[in-house]
Design a binder for these strands. Sequence first.
DNA 1: CGGAATTGTTACAGCTTTGTGACACCCGCT
DNA 2: AGCGGGTGTCACAAAGCTGTAACAATTCCG
Lengths: 227, 227
Amino acid sequence: MTTILFVEDEAPIRDLVRFALSRAGMTMLEAGDNAEAERLLASRRPDLILLDWMLPGGSGIELLRRLRRNPELRDLPVIMLTALAEEEQKVRGLEAGADDYLTKPFSPAELVARIRAVLRRATGADEQGRLRFDSLELDPATRRAWCRGHPLQLGPTEYRLLHFLIAHPGRVYTRAQLLDYAWPPDEAREERTVDVAIRRLRKALEPHGAQGLIQTLRGAGYRLDHA
Amino acid sequence: MTTILFVEDEAPIRDLVRFALSRAGMTMLEAGDNAEAERLLASRRPDLILLDWMLPGGSGIELLRRLRRNPELRDLPVIMLTALAEEEQKVRGLEAGADDYLTKPFSPAELVARIRAVLRRATGADEQGRLRFDSLELDPATRRAWCRGHPLQLGPTEYRLLHFLIAHPGRVYTRAQLLDYAWPPDEAREERTVDVAIRRLRKALEPHGAQGLIQTLRGAGYRLDHA
DNA sequence: CGGAATTGTTACAGCTTTGTGACACCCGCT
DNA sequence: AGCGGGTGTCACAAAGCTGTAACAATTCCG
């Protein structure tokens, strides 16, 4: 489920956007100001941040700057919301690292379209929101995955792991990173847990002729890459 | 047959639109004001609402807001009609959740094009406004549902749940989302409530040979999909 | 070549999640 | 007030996953 954090002080606009998002199959986290947003980000990680420019107690750009300095949150796509009269600030927003901007007033369809576009850029999904790599395909909306067109039977952990890997193909991740990114953030887990999950995932791919896609880098971690 | 509800107080414009729609193979329901529109919506479900901004006895936006709060009607696409002089109000229409708007005067071709575009984006109901998936069929207008032609005996909750699922087939929804979308928005409910409702719905489908249509995704939620 | 470190593989116990039936409550109807 | 259908919650049963440990295989390095 795609989760959007909306930082906006006016409640009616929040309601409206929540409605538009829910119709598009997304859920919304809300924050009324920067402080609240940061509190929220400490515990939850949305897929995208929708940030109003004008906020009580510090403008949105401040939050944006702080985000970009935080290694954990740096990759979060941000869409800035500006009123028509604030045209010039839009520029500053983009300079500060926003991925896109939207001028109020906007249509729900436009909002959703922008969000999808930005997310597509950020995650490498195609027009339908599907992720693809080599002979693999994964659809977050239906929570299904295929290999050469054959549906894969994946448990929750295997699915999350494949989802993460396919969204970041080619990169090497240590076991610790994978535990961070593809596991629920609850408690501590043995690093070898990852090995077993990788094994289970490989086993699920094998019967469909996808060998060697998940590579081991001795001493470093794992990587999804062409065989 | 696509049915459009046109809420508009000026008869000449109604005639004009009725003509344009009939040439495009659509039928039109008419209402002169909000009250009449709501009376109509109680018994019939159009595929789209064409809503004039200026109405005697309450502006169109009021109806729009009330629509959006009604779970049964929330998915109905709405196109707002505004006069050129009301340009700025169009903004408010979109903010209230209209899917598109049209500025008077407009050409018949433009009207039909907008309607088609919006309908394409909206849910996949057929010409009679019925929803279908696999062996299931559901008619929002009469609030009835069938499985392989056999009428289903559903309580209100089961009906709303099936309605939502069949309108969004294939997608996975968490228990929290289902509570949001298929339950009255009153108060808090236990998430396990969804399990029980799903169970009751499954039980209602079973006798008619529809097993496995409602799938459980461990750790994620439920999904309506081909077995 | 031998040993150490790293990773692959398997099995299993425990735990979390879900299915299921029962029950009490609410509400509209008679 | 009594009745009955519908709904939310709880408790228990069942199923499915997952983490861990233990052992095998592989790689690395001297």
